[in-house]
Design a protein around this nucleic acid. Sequence first.
DNA 1: AATCAAGCCAACCGCACGCTC
DNA 2: AGAGCGTGCGGTTGGCTTGAT
Length: 352
Amino acid sequence: MVRTPCCDQNGMKKGTWTPEEDRKLVAYVTRYGCWNWRQLPKFAGLKRCGKSCRLRWMNYLRPNVKRGNYTHEEEETITRLHASLGNKWSAIAAELPGRTDNEVKNYWHTNLKKRQKQNSSSVEISQLEKSSSNSTASIITTDNCLSPNNVDDYYSSEIQEVLMEPNNNNNNNSNEAMKMIMSSNSTSRSSQLETVVNKNNINNVHSPLSPQPSSSGSEISTTTTDTSTSTSRASTDNNNNNATTETTTNYSTNYFVGDLSYNFNDLFEDDQAFQHELFSDSFWTEPFLADHNSYIPTTTTHDHDYLITNANSLMDSDDLLSPTLDNILLFTSNSSTSTAGYFYEENLVGLL
DNA sequence: AATCAAGCCAACCGCACGCTC
DNA sequence: AGAGCGTGCGGTTGGCTTGAT
């Protein structure tokens, strides 16, 4: 069952977010950034207050938000920091990459606090946690890094040819390459997409309409999150464009279970219907166009931990008005685990 | 199978802080 | 200086899930 949505006196929707709302918010923020939370819902076509949008993004939709079990180390960190800082949840969460203050707070109240009480008299907390912890650690790895030395391994020869064609300018070459990639099989698509970016020597490029990378956020990291929960997700009826939901009673939770990249990669892999919806006029509705014509965000906050790169902008194109299959690439970014200029398989969150 | 209770956690609310003018 | 605005933080709520009976 889904929590019954309600509206406040201003007609703003409250309660559980629907997949459709999530899509709109993700699409808008990844394209334009969170330049003003209060104004954002209006431009994004959401009947939510800015606070609600911010909370949803920060705690749930943002790339690199780690979900699932806490590791022993994370539990220790929370326990230790709470002992010294008290209920400074944001400060504690800052020491736990991927965890939000809200999540840490909830975890403390539901697990650690209880445990600490039970064992404070005689048992060392760390020993207890060690015995009780069977959680799956998140893995930070550089194994899938595509360095400039091996990017060509990831190109198909066809695409390399297009990119190297002397008579085309870089923009046309790249757009053509992108189209070829999109028509290729899904297993090679993501790696080829990111090498298009590498091939154009793009490390820190962004659209004037997309969020600026944070001061430390131009690099790319890779984070794999445990997604042990079974997943179902929304799909779209290709014919009538009506969203339907598969096998879910709490679809907003199930839809985004695990990390965001899972979902986007999933869409990327096999959900042509949803991709189709994303690129249709009905999804990219008036707010985007109005935004584009009337307001160009020029400021962003410094808490972006993702890099949204507009492929057209990477290719020096001015045409951003019509989102198409070849114009927006979304990577996650985290300066703490990155190597500048490298693009990682897992960090290609998707193509919008 | 049905009911109940406890636990979990996403989301809301109010306040405080910082920035701009 | 202080008013207005946007954002962040911590406390709280309440609907959903799960396990016990």
